[in-house]
Lab assay of single mutants.
Amino acid sequence: SEHYTFDGEEQAIRFMRDMEAKNLKYELQIHNGKYIIQVD
């Protein structure tokens, strides 16, 4: 699995939509205002 970190919500949402379009599962965590997305 890989981790991707985003500072902004818009970037994170765009990335998650992209993952959904590719049928990839992901998990979102928010730490200290950063959006951390783990992709299986």
Score class of each variant (00 low, 15 high):
G8S: 15
R17M: 12
I36Y: 12
Y26D: 01
L24R: 10
T5G: 03
L24N: 05
A12S: 02
N23M: 07
Q29H: 13
H3T: 15
A21C: 07
Y35A: 01
Y35N: 00
K34G: 03
A21Q: 10
I13Y: 09
Y26S: 05
I36L: 07
R17D: 08
R14W: 04
D40G: 12
Y26I: 08
Q29T: 14
D40L: 15
L28F: 10
L28G: 01
D18R: 07
L24T: 06
V39K: 02
E27C: 14
G8T: 15
E10I: 05
Q38K: 14
I13R: 11
K34M: 10
L28R: 00
K25R: 11
M16V: 06
Y26N: 01
I37P: 00
N32E: 11
E27K: 12
S1A: 11
N32F: 05
D40M: 15
E10M: 06
D40Q: 14
G33M: 02
I37S: 00
E2W: 14
V39E: 01
G33Q: 04
K25N: 09
M19L: 15
E27N: 11
H31Q: 12
A12D: 01
L28A: 04
K34V: 11
Q29D: 08
Y35L: 04
L24E: 04
H31S: 11
M16P: 01
E10A: 09
T5Y: 13
S1D: 10
F15S: 02
K34A: 05
G33P: 00
M16G: 03
Q11W: 07
L24C: 08
A21K: 11
H31A: 10
Q11A: 13
D18M: 13
N32G: 08
N23A: 07
N32Y: 05
E2Q: 13
A21N: 09
Q11C: 13
E27L: 11
E27V: 13
E10H: 04
I13N: 11
Q38V: 15
N32A: 06
L24K: 10
H3K: 13
I13L: 13
F15D: 02
I13K: 11
K22S: 07
E20N: 06
Q38E: 09
Q29E: 10
F6R: 00
M19Q: 04
R17K: 13
E9L: 15
I30C: 13
A12L: 07
S1C: 15
E2I: 14
I30W: 05
R17F: 06
Q29A: 09
Y26L: 05
R14Y: 04
Q11N: 08
F15Y: 03
Y35P: 01
E9G: 03
V39P: 03
R14Q: 13
E27P: 00
D7W: 09
S1N: 12
A21S: 11
I13C: 11
N23P: 01
M16A: 06
H31L: 13
L28Y: 08
F15V: 06
N23E: 07
Y4W: 10
E10V: 06
I13G: 05
F6D: 00
I37L: 05
I37Q: 00
V39W: 05
Q38C: 15
M16N: 00
S1G: 12
N23C: 14
Y4I: 07
G33N: 07
H31K: 13
E9I: 14
E2K: 13
A21E: 11
G33Y: 02
N32T: 03
H3Y: 15
K34S: 06
K22D: 04
Q29S: 11
E2S: 13
F6L: 03
I36P: 00
G8R: 12
L24V: 12
Y26V: 13
H31Y: 10
N23W: 04
R17A: 12
K22W: 05
E10Q: 08
K22G: 05
Y35S: 00
K22Y: 05
Y4P: 03
D7Y: 10
E9M: 12
E10S: 07
E2P: 11
Y4S: 01
R14K: 12
Y26G: 04
K25G: 08
A12N: 01
A21G: 09
M16I: 11
Y26Q: 00
D18S: 09
M19S: 02
E9T: 05
E9S: 06
G8L: 14
R17C: 14
K25E: 07
D40F: 15
A12T: 03
Q11V: 06
G8C: 15
D7Q: 05
E2Y: 14
E9D: 04
V39F: 06
Y26P: 07
K25Q: 09
Q29Y: 13
D18C: 15
D7P: 05
E10T: 07
D7V: 06
K34F: 09
M16S: 01
E20P: 01
S1F: 13
M19H: 03
R14E: 14
D18Y: 12
I37H: 00
K34E: 05
T5P: 02
E10L: 06
Q11H: 07
R14C: 15
Y35E: 00
Q11R: 05
M16K: 01
E9K: 10
Q11I: 06
M19C: 15
E2T: 14
I37W: 00
N23G: 15
L24G: 04
K34T: 07
H31F: 11
I13V: 09
F15L: 05
E27R: 12
M19T: 03
E9W: 15
F15H: 04
A21H: 08
H3E: 12
A12V: 04
K34D: 02
I30G: 01
F6Y: 03
H3V: 15
I13E: 10
Y26H: 03
H3D: 07
R17E: 12
I13F: 09
I30L: 07
F15K: 04
A12E: 01
